[in-house]
Computed example of a mutant assay.
Amino acid sequence: MIVRTLKECIQSERRVVSENWESVRMLLKDDNMGFSFHITTIYQDTETHIHYKNHLESVYCVSGSGEIEVVGGETFPIEPGTLYILDQHDEHYLRAYPGQNMVMACVFNPPLNGQEVHDASGVYPLS
């Protein structure tokens, strides 16, 4: 059994910070579960280009609000209780509205190693 708290993970190398977001990677590839689990905070009033060519992701909004715009497609509002699933390696823009950060619970398959950040095309490398 693996037991971790968000508090202890925040105070470790499992917390990865970028200009637009921070991600606390609570479950990673070396845990051998076949997926990774993260609590990610999208900073208010930001836009992030993301294109997970190597990963599938499910994202549940815990708090805050914003939107996801699929490149060449629709824009969907995000608010607490919204789940979106990037099941087609969907290239998108993730925006957090002003006033409050968005806190998201995220699951990745295949799992991340832990220190990945988006490259210039919005991609996480395959680990």
Rank of each mutant, 00 (worst) to 15 (best):
G64S: 08
E57H: 02
L56Q: 12
E69Y: 05
E67A: 11
E67H: 12
S58Y: 10
H49D: 13
H51L: 09
S63N: 03
D45Y: 01
E47L: 04
G72M: 06
E74N: 07
D45R: 04
G72Q: 03
I78E: 00
I50F: 03
T41C: 13
S63E: 15
H51N: 06
K53W: 05
G66Y: 12
I39N: 00
Q44D: 00
H55V: 06
V70L: 11
T41W: 12
H38N: 13
N54G: 12
T46S: 03
F76R: 06
F76P: 04
G73W: 00
S58P: 09
V59M: 03
T75R: 04
E74S: 05
D45S: 03
E57M: 04
I78D: 00
P77F: 02
L56I: 07
T46C: 02
T40H: 07
V59H: 11
E47K: 15
H49L: 13
L56E: 10
L56W: 12
E74Y: 06
E67W: 14
T75S: 05
I68E: 01
T46M: 03
P77D: 08
G72S: 04
I50V: 15
H55C: 11
K53D: 15
E67C: 07
V59D: 02
S58G: 09
S65C: 13
I42V: 13
G66T: 04
T75W: 01
T41S: 10
V70P: 07
S65N: 14
F76T: 04
N54L: 05
G64A: 03
V62L: 15
V70T: 03
G72E: 06
V62Y: 14
G72W: 11
I50Y: 12
F37W: 02
E47P: 06
E57P: 01
T75L: 05
G66I: 06
T40Y: 06
G73N: 02
T48E: 06
V59C: 08
Y43K: 08
Y43D: 00
G73R: 03
T48S: 14
Y60T: 15
T75Q: 02
T46I: 13
S58F: 03
F76V: 05
S58D: 10
G64C: 12
I50E: 14
C61N: 15
E57A: 07
E74P: 01
T48F: 06
T75N: 01
Y60N: 11
V62Q: 15
H51D: 00
G66W: 12
Y60H: 15
S58L: 07
F37S: 06
G73C: 07
T40I: 05
V70W: 06
T46N: 01
T75E: 05
E57Q: 12
K53L: 13
P77C: 02
I50N: 14
I68M: 10
T46F: 05
H51R: 14
G66Q: 10
